[in-house]
Structures are given as C-alpha cells and as structure tokens.
C-alpha cells in the first residue's frame, strides 16, 4: 500500500479525539471506534498518530486493531455489502448467495471493487434470523435472498 500523507487537519482531528478520551491507553478501543467512525478505516499512518497521543507503541495499537474484526485497515466501498454467515443463514443457503456476490462483483471476501463502489464482507448474525439468509448493504437489510436475486440488488446501486 502506498504511504499516505495525512493532512494537518486530519492529524488535528485525531489528536482532538484522543484528547477527548484523556489520552489514556485504557481508552484505546473507544478512540479507535471514534476515529474509524470519522475516517472509515484505520490505515497505519492514522494508527501511528493515535499511538503517540495515547502513549502506547504503534505495535501495541496495531495488535488491538488487528485483533477485533470491527476495525479495518482497508477502506470500504461506497456500498459495503455484508453477507450474514450466522448459522441460521448458513443452513438456509447463505453460502450460495455469497458465491453469487463474488461472481457478480468479481471480488473476494474482504476486497473492494476497483471503482470503489462495493466491498464484500461476511458477518456473524445480525439477529434477523427470521429473514435468513440476510444481506446488509450499508444499513439496509435484504432478507430471504436467493442467488437469483443478487444481480437485481446490485443493479439498484450500480446506477
């Protein structure tokens, strides 16, 4: 990945967030939540600034970022697609739906399309098991999905 150069504004924003949590190492996870909410993802350069501000090593912070699946170091697409792979969805055919998304978008799980429009991920149980199999696009929930329906849904967002 090319090295990003963070703008002064962004660095100040990060510092501001760290300060709002008292620059305490124990607030690392809260800080990361807030910063990811702001920037969408947590590239290495951003982590370095946070680490310095809350007085931990960059390696320590990287350890936290990579431990939790909620934190991501790659930017998500404009329309992040999450296919639920909880057990209820799995036994009702989520894998076939996922395969169809992969084929239609020509990307693997964890990747983003070259035009930055879609990214594909799996998640574990959104708690809408009555609608299994379930797919989230952004915050919108699509339930009882079949592989046949995948193309239409993607087309909703393509235009």
């Amino acid at each position: 990945m090319a090295k990003l150069k963070l703008s002064e504004d962004k660095i100040n924003k990060i510092k501001e967030i760290c300060a709002s949590f008292g620059n305490k190492p124990s607030e690392a996870i809260n800080v990361l939540h807030k910063v990811q909410g702001e920037f969408g993802y947590l590239p290495a350069e951003v982590q370095e600034v946070i680490a310095q501000e809350i007085h931990v090593s960059a390696a320590h912070l990287y350890g936290i970022v990579t431990f939790y699946s909620f934190f991501t170091m790659t930017p998500k697409g404009e329309h992040p697609i999450s296919v639920c792979m909880g057990t209820a969805c799995y036994v009702r055919g989520a894998e076939k739906v996922l395969d169809e998304f992969k084929r239609e978008l020509k990307i693997a799980v964890g990747e983003t399309t070259p035009d930055g429009k879609f990214s594909l991920n799996c998640l574990r149980c959104v708690g809408a098991c009555g609608l299994a199999p379930v797919v989230l696009i952004g915050d919108k929930v699509y339930g009882r999905l079949t592989p046949d329906g995948v193309k239409d849904i993607i087309n909703e967002y393509r235009s």
């Binding site: 305490k24 190492p25 124990s26 607030e27 690392a28 996870i29 809260n30 990361l32 939540h33 936290i64 431990f67 939790y68 699946s69 909620f70 934190f71 574990r124």
Partner: peptide, 21 residues
C-alpha cells in the same frame, strides 16, 4: 463499553481485558 467484534470476548477474563483497552 463497546466491543469490537471478537467472539472470545464473551469469556469473562477476555471481556475484562477488552474493557481495559
């Protein structure tokens, strides 16, 4: 306190470490 997606954090000692950042 917010979790960040780790199944093992349901285990109480892991949960406590996660709350400590």
């Amino acid at each position: 306190r917010y979790g960040a997606g780790a199944f093992v954090c349901g285990e109480e000692t892991a949960l406590i470490h996660s709350m400590e950042g």
